[in-house]
């Protein structure tokens, strides 16, 4: 079935499935080993290369599994991993598996504008104030009413020396907010890019000389996962690659755009809205009786209609007129034998050039305005008791 419509064909809110948005995406690492080649790492040899692509690869490679930074021997010791997701996603979690001792401090950032600006999602450190100027996460969660980037404990080392950074976007959000009804939560979970800043190696923890030259250190990680749903605002159940290779929502409900964030041109009878589980808020096509291809939205009309309809048809064709192309334009009248949607619904008045007092007939009945003594729908005959004269000004005169 169609997730975006019920069995009766009525629209309903729909969302794409949960995916790893980072899978297969390019990762930009500020430092990667192997250039120049060392004994342990050679970027030109696939058997000994540790490229950043390994962070988001699908697996199955015969060579190494982990990305590695260069050996870091002096400040700055931070290394940045940036993953463009290709389009907006609504995040659920971010995780990164370390192949060696995990860093002592990590910052997780997001961008909502394809990398032009960045905002923190969370920090991970035992020295929150020193590293990030933040207080450790309060046990009660965010202090304010909305989500915020908190400072959590750093990823813990496992017995085998590895470690896992795991962040749930709900960790920074106060309980009780739900995505359907909270614009601030919708904004909080939305990201086009993810950036992980490995700020400080563990081995330097507590070392007063951590900004000076120290023993070489290498960050090493694999499996950067960004769990989330392609952001389609409740109007698509999947995202597809368009002709240019860009990931875009497969929009339904009369919406369009990469995130289904606007109504299609003819679907502007009411304002765009995000769908919820209770209401699809589908964009509605303007009602133009088949006589117009374009329409525009008018907020005043929408309010006056009790927030039901605000579409105004543009360029009504087939001699129709009106907000819904629902009556005939001047000089034409409604042919009752044709459906309103028929292209022949409006017929020319055809008022008689001499018998009629004007060219405009009644738009409903087709009756032309007749001069004295003239009769007929088009005013083309003298009435009973009248006869044709020679004067075009008074074409019918009383019969003597």
């Amino acid at each position: 079935g169609d997730p975006c419509h019920d069995e009766g064909g009525a629209p309903r809110g729909c969302v794409p499935g949960l995916v790893n948005a980072a899978l297969g995406r390019d990762v930009l690492a500020s430092s990667t080993c192997g250039r120049p080649a060392t004994r342990a790492c050679d970027a030109s040899d696939p058997r000994r290369a540790h490229p950043a692509a390994l962070l988001t690869a699908a697996g199955g490679t015969a060579g190494p599994l982990c990305w590695r930074s260069d050996s870091l021997v002096r400040a700055p010791l931070n290394v940045t991993l940036t993953v463009p997701l290709g389009k907006a996603f609504e995040l659920v979690f971010v995780s990164l598996r370390f192949c060696s001792q995990p860093p002592a401090s990590v910052a997780l950032l997001k961008s909502q504008d394809h990398g032009r600006s960045w905002a923190p999602l969370g920090f991970f450190s035992s020295r929150c104030a020193l590293d990030y100027g933040r207080l450790p996460r309060p046990s009660t969660g965010p202090a304010g009413p909305g989500p915020e980037a908190l400072c959590f404990p750093p990823p813990q080392a496992q017995p085998d020396g590895s470690g896992l950074l795991a962040f749930s976007v709900q960790d920074g959000s106060p309980p009780g907010l739900d995505l359907d009804n909270s614009p601030v939560l919708q904004d909080w979970v939305t990201a086009t890019d993810i950036r992980v800043v490995l700020t400080r190696p563990t081995m330097l923890l507590g070392d007063a000389r951590d900004t000076e030259a120290v023993a070489p250190y290498t960050y090493s990680a694999t499996e950067l996962q960004v769990g989330g749903r392609c952001k389609c605002n409740g109007h698509a159940s999947q995202c597809l690659l368009d002709a240019q290779g860009h990931l875009v929502c497969d929009c339904r409900h009369g919406t369009e755009g990469p995130d289904c964030s606007r109504c299609k041109p003819f679907y502007c009878d009411r304002p765009w809205q995000r769908a919820t589980t209770r209401d699809a808020h589908a964009c509605l096509a303007c009602s133009c009786n088949g006589h117009a291809r374009r329409c525009r939205f008018n907020m005043e009309l929408y309010r006056l209609s009790g927030r039901r309809s605000g579409g105004v048809c543009l360029n009504c064709r087939h001699n129709t007129a009106g907000r819904h192309c629902h009556y005939c334009r001047e000089g034409f009248y409604r042919d009752p034998g044709q459906a309103l949607s028929d292209r022949r619904a409006c017929r020319a008045c055809d008022c008689h050039p001499v018998g009629a007092a004007g060219k405009t007939c009644n738009q409903t009945t087709g009756q032309c305005p007749c001069k004295d003594g003239v009769t007929g729908l088009t005013c083309n005959r003298c009435a009973l008791g009248f006869q044709q004269s020679r004067s075009p000004v008074a074409p019918c005169v009383k019969t003597p």
Binding site: V354, V374, L384, F386, P392, P395
Partner: peptide
């Protein structure tokens, strides 16, 4: 009784040339 349609040929346009419709 149905009256005949107006006969355009019977009208005298001498004084109303500017009103004469194009046929």
């Amino acid at each position: 009784e149905v009256m005949p349609t107006l006969d355009m040929a019977l009208f005298d346009w001498t004084d109303y040339e500017d009103l004469k419709p194009e046929v």
